[in-house]
Design a protein around this nucleic acid. Structure first.
Length: 489
RNA sequence: GCAGGAGUAGCUUAAUGGCUAAGAGCACUAGGUUUGGGACCUAGGGGGUGUCAGUUCGAGUCUGACUUCUUGCACCA
């Protein structure tokens, strides 16, 4: 049991989360506030996410490119809403040289090396990209332009938490240009579906697809779509966003094209992204008091084989055969032959790291032609036969993947409450948490008032919401559909 | 950013302002004995207490600034 190492969830959820990040070897703090070092095991998980998403982007016609980290300060001022949204958290480069401190040790900024134009470290790349697209787009024949980039961005946040909100984070940002509004809107929605599919099929993290309110939408967007997930502590996590940008950036950066009728038009744009924040979502969707729990599709090690009590010729033979068979199926497997560590230690360590399936092989097992199999999601132990074991393990991995999603869906259902009065709303929020489905009169004023009174925000207007006459829980004004409230990360 | 709390070895932590030996457990190294859920024995190595400055005969213990983490608030993708 890892309970001596990690604080239990019920005791202190934040401490538990930090404990997982630290003790599962995902990340650690850096000397700079809000920045983190992603360690090899954590990065391996991110790589799996990245590779799959990258594949999905390419399958839908996108290509990768890379735009620079530094953006001329003046670019940020071109789209009014966009500036306002990001101005508060931009890191600015003002000088390009250090010098020996004339008054003592160390180095100081050389005051004579001031930059002509200050540079902003990208908080997102719309501005540099649209400045570039102006030159790339002349005709409808140049469209659509479907580009993605994998990059780091910096947003100087006041309050940071590993993966969930860091000053620097890794993400992908797609930036597309289209000749019609409809096509751009379809792109926005297509990517939203892609994100949702990824979240559910790969992360086993159920999400609600929806539209953001005006108040919550991306600075510079016409519409922001979101996938919202529910964490175990009842708080929501915005896990990915896809924006229909209209012609806002095209106008700000003067990106026009000649259409088929030889008429000049501004192009239509989208942008969309998911980040290392997904790692936080992954942790808080599945993990438990024994450590990380990973869905097999994202686990760097899917199966670990532990010789009991230690490797010997007979056990090695059985293990090597199994390793070979599993690898042939594309399953990543580790045979832990470390003689210094006893089985019990290894069991705990791999449970802490979230390895989905553990196989224990001992002399007694081999005599009976079985092994010991323990699955991480349920902690169930079984004794499958050595015959057809690789097939069996493959099945178990699929089952774990499925079970994690089902479990998370059930949790979300239990934690989604429909309320019709403000008293109920507050009651549920305090005692139960989770998503609250309620009527809202559609005004920013009411939204902000509810936030002020309860700390809950409107996570989204779910896309699958039924039209339903009702009255706003706060003002009693008429409403046509329920929206989803929650306290959020 | 504001208000509280905290920073001692890789981790968890001990040490009324006082003998320039900052103690331990885990981890690490060597050897040995063990081995079906975090083994045990023996012998080792590692820290000058987040950083800088100050008070003091004397600072891990007190003061200030800075820095990082953390809780709450504010802010925010």
């Amino acid at each position: 049991m890892a309970k001596d190492i990690i604080t239990e969830r019920s005791e202190d959820y934040s401490a538990w989360y930090n404990g997982i990040v630290k003790h599962a070897g995902l990340a650690e703090n850096s000397p700079v506030k809000g920045c983190m070092i992603i360690k090899p095991y954590g990065f391996a998980i991110w790589e799996k996410m990245r590779d799959q998403l990258d594949k999905m982007f390419k399958e839908t016609g996108h290509v990768n490119a890379y735009f620079p980290l530094f953006i001329p300060k003046s670019f940020l001022s071109k789209e009014a809403d966009h500036v306002e949204g990001f101005a508060m958290e931009c890191v600015v480069v003002t000088h390009h040289r250090l010098m020996k401190n004339p008054d003592g040790d160390g180095v100081v900024v050389d005051p004579t090396a001031k930059l002509e134009e200050e540079l902003v470290v990208r908080p997102t790349s719309e501005t540099i990209i649209w400045d570039t697209y102006r030159n790339w787009i002349q005709s409808y024949r140049d469209l659509p332009l479907l580009i993605n980039q994998w990059a780091n961005v910096v947003r100087w946040e006041m309050k940071t938490r590993a993966f969930l909100r860091t000053a620097e984070f890794l993400w992908q940002e797609g930036h597309t240009a289209h000749s019609t509004q409809q096509e751009a809107e379809e792109e926005t929605r297509m990517i939203l579906d892609l994100y949702a599919q990824f979240a559910e099929e790969w992360m086993a993290m159920p999400v609600v697809k929806g539209v953001k309110t005006i108040n919550e939408r991306f600075a510079g967007a016409v519409d922001t779509y979101t996938i919202e997930a529910l964490m175990q502590d009842g708080k929501a996590l915005q896990s990915g966003t896809s924006h229909f940008l209209g012609q806002n950036f095209a106008k700000a950066f003067d990106v026009r094209f000649l259409n088929e009728n030889n008429k000049e038009e501004f192009v239509w744009a989208t942008s969309w992204g998911v980040s290392t924040r997904l790692m936080g979502g992954l942790i808080m969707t599945h993990s438990d008091d024994d450590g990380l729990v990973l869905p097999p599709k994202l686990a760097p090690i899917q199966v670990v084989i532990v010789p009991i009590p230690k490797p010997n010729e007979v056990i090695n033979e059985a293990a090597d055969k199994l390793v070979k068979e599993l690898r042939a199926k594309g399953i990543s497997v580790k045979y832990d032959t470390d003689k210094k560590k006893r089985p019990g230690f290894k069991f705990n360590e791999y449970e802490l790291k979230g390895v989905p399936v553990r196989i224990g092989i001992g002399k007694r097992d081999l005599e009976k032609n079985i092994v010991e199999l323990k699955r991480r999601d349920t902690m169930e132990v079984s004794q499958p036969s050595l015959d057809g074991l690789a097939d069996h393990i493959e099945q178990v991995l699929e089952d774990i993947q499925k079970n994690l999603l089902t479990r998370a869906k059930n949790f979300r259902s239990e934690k989604t409450t429909v309320v019709d009065t403000f008293d109920e709303f507050k009651e549920v929020l305090e005692t139960k948490g989770g998503f609250i489905s309620a009527h809202w009169d559609g005004t920013t004023e009411t939204e902000l008032k509810i936030k002020e009174l309860t700390k809950a925000t409107i996570r989204c207007l779910p896309l699958d919401a039924q039209e339903e006459e009702g009255s706003c829980i706060l003002t009693g004004k008429p409403s046509r559909q329920r929206v989803l409230f929650a306290k959020a990360y």
